[in-house]
Write a protein that binds this DNA or RNA. Structure first.
Lengths: 343, 343
DNA sequence: CGTTAGCACTCGCAAGCAATGAGTGCTAAC
DNA sequence: GTTAGCACTCATTGCTTGCGAGTGCTAACG
């Protein structure tokens, strides 16, 4: 569809624009040592590329900038992802060599590394509910009226919730309930807990205690605990350093959106069947606030099943090659780290 | 020091500037129905006020704006904190009437209410370590090599940490250790835990187990767990809506600072001996990034001892009266909520 | 003597305008 | 097919000008 020369020119334009954030003119392209054509020739090709929809002109008499389609082509044809210095690779490697034994810490630190290395905003999604099951359930009384319910998951995460003890329920009664839950619900995936509570536990519970209904309500609320505050952000203010976001209003929309955990989760949840590194350019993100942003995501996994997602959000004018290499490395390293842990 | 009329004029100027964010001229003051003087008279007074350091002129031939000293005077002489609508009061009251039984949730929600009602940024400091003690300690084995240590505090907070089990330690040994810790350390303030571990527990531990040293290292790291990730932010992007921060560079510094938890903690920790509502205007905050911001803080307490701090960060041109009323109410309500809980 | 009217003066700001220059499209020549 | 040349476009810059909001000062007024 595109001639070799057109591809080359498109590449140069995207690269240049990523660097400078300014429209690229024919003259500056022609002056590059690896381009052997005069400005006029370049101009002809650029006109063609614009007609094909790969380039845009902010206004007549300005240079060209890549269109979304142009970025898309560029991204789809990035060849060998060089563009990452050995020193940087080393940063990553030494990080993962460190002894980190809390999942949450690993994720958090990974987010920081990502945003620092790229100068964009990083969004990490923790291990997902779907692949995590209950390992242990516990209830610790605090005083006569309240207790802490503790849920330990198969990935070692611990969630807790303070609950009110229904009046009249004795300690031994509570113990029985806890034992019942552990025998019935261990190894059940988290997202199935609530349905299992009703299908398997409820009847038996009725036999154990007279406070059947109150207890069921409490247990329901415990198992309901949101397993979704597991979105980690880092480098949000990096957005502000990008020249395209010097307009405060635009950036506010973006930052506001970054504050909405549920939205982020939806955005970062991989579409079924897709794996590897995903790039969503500009309006391909279905949020209007991200119309001028690109989101690059990758998944990390355990035993072939994807556990979570790492993502980088930046302007459409993003250093795709570089970011994609970094993501590739980090997602792989996360995967191996996890498999070492749980083997 | 100031005449009645000067005070009145200063008040009008501050009020006006808070509303409009634009320098206030003599004419507009004179036109207010409650001001019975001509622009010329006002001008004379304004010249005096400027000489005294209460007002500033951005440039000749512009109106006046309050200086830091002017704000300070204004704040110190705010009289009846009216300025809060019954409907708003109701919002707060119904919020605190809701059944909230997790400390963390209360704090988080309070942060949201504060930022929503004021349209500024709210910073909340959770209950401090100093007034919290250990209620319960627990160790849950995950598999042969790792376990989750769980610490429940007297305020109902639960912290957990994954630790490696020293090889060779049996389950019964672990249980003994846990029992020992509970008998020795319950009701000890969190910040004393580590010293008590060595002074009271260590010797006895040596008699119980042959893995004395390894276990001590593990326990040390467990009790070390940072109790400091308890700064809650809400409405950070509200900063962006203020006209004085339409310059992205300034706002970036502020947002960056807001991301630094330790700095925030330091800033929000009340200076000894001070209580009630504190206002720090402009450069009174010792961070250069906050030179154009004001920080209003209040503490909430339990049984007379202050537990934590709530704060609002906004531009120096802040609705002091309004914000201070809201803070007053919320800090009091937080205090009563807590005392109801723990009584 | 405090207050006010009047007036000259300052100065930021917006509008208008010309010069600049980067960049284009087109045509004709190589 | 490539390139040199040229007329044209248009955002940006710098400059001038006029406007108006606001001041400070002086003199007059009750």
């Amino acid at each position: 569809m595109l001639t070799e020369r057109q591809r080359m020119i498109l590449n140069v334009i995207v690269d240049d624009y990523i660097r400078s954030a300014e429209p690229v003119g024919s003259r500056s392209i022609s002056k590059r040592p690896d381009v052997g054509y005069s400005p006029a020739t370049i101009r002809n090709e650029m006109a063609d590329l614009e007609e094909l929809g790969f380039l845009e002109q902010p206004h007549t008499s300005a240079g060209r900038i890549p269109s979304h389609k142009g970025y898309r082509y560029y991204v789809d044809h990035i060849t060998p992802w060089n563009s990452i210095a050995p020193a940087e690779l080393n940063t990553i490697r030494t990080f993962f060599a460190e002894k980190l034994n809390v999942m949450e810490q690993v994720i958090q630190q990974s987010a920081m590394i990502l945003s620092h290395m790229t100068n964009y905003t990083s969004i990490l999604l923790g291990p997902e509910v779907f692949h995590t099951s209950l390992r242990h359930f516990q209830l610790l009384p605090l005083n006569e009226t309240t207790a802490v319910a503790i849920i330990v998951t198969s990935t070692g995460q611990v969630e807790n919730k303070t609950v009110a003890i229904p009046p009249g329920v004795s300690v031994s009664e509570m113990e029985k309930v806890v034992n019942l839950l552990n025998s019935k619900l261990v190894n059940v995936p988290l997202f199935k807990l609530k349905s299992r509570l009703y299908s398997e536990v409820a009847q038996e519970l009725e036999r154990y205690t007279s406070h059947y209904e109150e207890l069921l309500i409490v247990l329901d609320s415990v198992l309901d605990s949101e397993h979704d505050h597991q979105v980690y952000l880092s480098g949000t203010t990096n957005m502000l350093t990008q020249p395209e976001f010097k307009d405060v209003d635009k950036v506010k929309d973006i930052l506001d959106l970054l504050g909405e955990t549920p939205t982020l989760m939806k955005m970062m949840t991989p579409t079924a069947g897709e794996s590897g590194i995903q790039v969503r350019i500009g309006t391909e993100n279905d949020h209007k606030a991200f119309a001028n942003c690109s989101l690059i995501t990758a998944t990390y996994s355990l035993e072939g099943e994807s556990l979570g997602t790492i993502g980088i959000l930046g302007p459409t004018r993003m250093e795709y090659a570089r970011v994609m290499s970094i993501m590739e490395i980090i997602s792989k390293d996360l995967t191996t780290l996890l498999s070492h842990w749980y083997k």
